[in-house]
Write a protein that binds this DNA or RNA. Structure first.
Lengths: 146, 146
DNA sequence: TTCGTTGCAAAGCTTTTGCACGAAT
DNA sequence: ATTCGTGCAAAAGCTTTGCAACGAA
């Protein structure tokens, strides 16, 4: 189902009002990259000459999280990141602490682990975060030459 | 090796000073429960009538993270949590997004994945972060009752 | 004596909130 | 006419930082 319809229905069902601000925010959220910050969304909307306050950004993001159109995730304690739930694919990241290089990888075992833990503890998993930090091949070699 | 020796050595090797505040903080960190907040450590030390400022708590925790005696973890964006690394096998966390409950778990497959990726990309892994977010059994049931 | 360290308070940042005005139904 | 939403600015809450006094080496 289309995101906008889901959101409008959600608003209606909860006696919330359909406002221009809310519609703009949903529309622009859908255009952003996978993991975006509230501030990025705010700046983005400002950049297309639409005026929406930061408060409305945060409040509307909360609503979008409520109706499962958006996930709010917690990456590094600097701020929350948001991502749309539509078309989401899973992969993890290796981040080189020397040069910042990122390697994406995917192992089906991760999903098996999640399935296993879901069953064992009767959980309902919505999101996960899996990062590996260290030195990439190049930086490892540079380091050992010293 | 004993934590205190590791810390003292670390300080010496980095031309940092061995101060009473740092020693107290290390000592009391070791007494705390698994996942504690900086504020809890601060209050704990105050409660035993030792005077250490919040700033020193934060600065010393950073040092302890630097020398791998403590991990700094990020569960819910409210604050950082810390845990000692001594005598602790690696484990990951499930965090309930409704009630904040934390479940620790360990799967050897994670290590296999890391070994595999290390070999494949010739990496040097120093740390990783793996959190799963969702609803725990109780909160899942509460939600479905509505 | 020399620097690193401490405590304090202020600043920094992201997110939330109180309030008066404005808009949707 | 209600009632909810918005913008603004202030508040919140955790963490970091600037600075002067202090203390370890």
């Amino acid at each position: 189902m289309e995101a906008q319809k889901i959101f409008v229905d959600y608003l209606k069902q909860n006696d919330l009002k359909n406002t221009p601000e809310r519609m703009v925010i949903l529309q622009e959220v859908m255009k952003l990259d996978k993991h975006f910050e509230a501030e990025v969304l705010f700046e983005h909307i400002k950049s297309i000459n639409i005026k929406v306050s930061r408060a409305s950004i945060y409040r509307t993001l909360d609503l979008l999280v409520q109706c499962d159109l958006v996930n709010r995730i917690n990456f590094d304690n600097t701020c929350f990141y948001y991502e749309t739930t539509m078309n989401k694919s899973s992969h993890d990241h290796f981040i080189c602490t020397e040069c910042g290089k990122i390697i994406e990888f995917y192992y089906s075992e991760i999903e098996k682990i999640h399935k296993n833990i879901t069953d064992k503890f009767e959980l309902d998993i919505s999101e996960y975060s899996h990062q590996i930090y260290g030195k990439c091949k190049d930086c490892k070699q540079k380091k050992s030459l010293k």
